[in-house]
């Protein structure tokens, strides 16, 4: 992996789901992130967390309107950032209504 060409991609993202980045999308996000070889990080202000850890992602408390920076480093970074950014930027997730408390 280290011998492969390494890429570094970053993207600024605003959470558009009215319910924020709640458990369902967070689970989907880390599942997909774990499928990539690249290192995935998400930054909110000063706080940078591991994008492959559910516990760390949920600690971001990303609500509607929260700005995040997605940072992906690795061989499949370009592909990964597209997939992962899409999840974060989605305006609604399946079952949002049912999953609502």
């Amino acid at each position: 992996m280290d011998s492969a060409p390494s890429n570094h991609s970053e993207r600024l993202i605003t959470i558009r789901n009215p319910h924020g980045l709640h458990m369902r999308p967070a689970v989907e996000f880390i599942d997909r992130a774990n499928g990539f070889a690249s290192e995935v990080q998400v930054q909110k202000g000063e706080l940078i967390v591991d994008g492959k850890s559910i516990y760390q992602i949920t600690q971001l408390i990303a609500k509607f309107g929260t700005e995040l920076k997605l940072i992906v480093k690795g061989t499949d970074a370009e592909q990964a950032i597209e997939v992962l950014a899409e999840i974060l930027e989605r305006e609604s997730y399946d079952n949002d209504v049912q999953a609502a408390p």
Binding site: H19, T58, Q59, I61, K63
Partner: peptide, 11 residues
């Protein structure tokens, strides 16, 4: 505690 502090009930 971190969760509870957010006013957003969904979280």
């Amino acid at each position: 505690k971190n969760f509870a502090q957010t006013p957003d009930s969904y979280i």
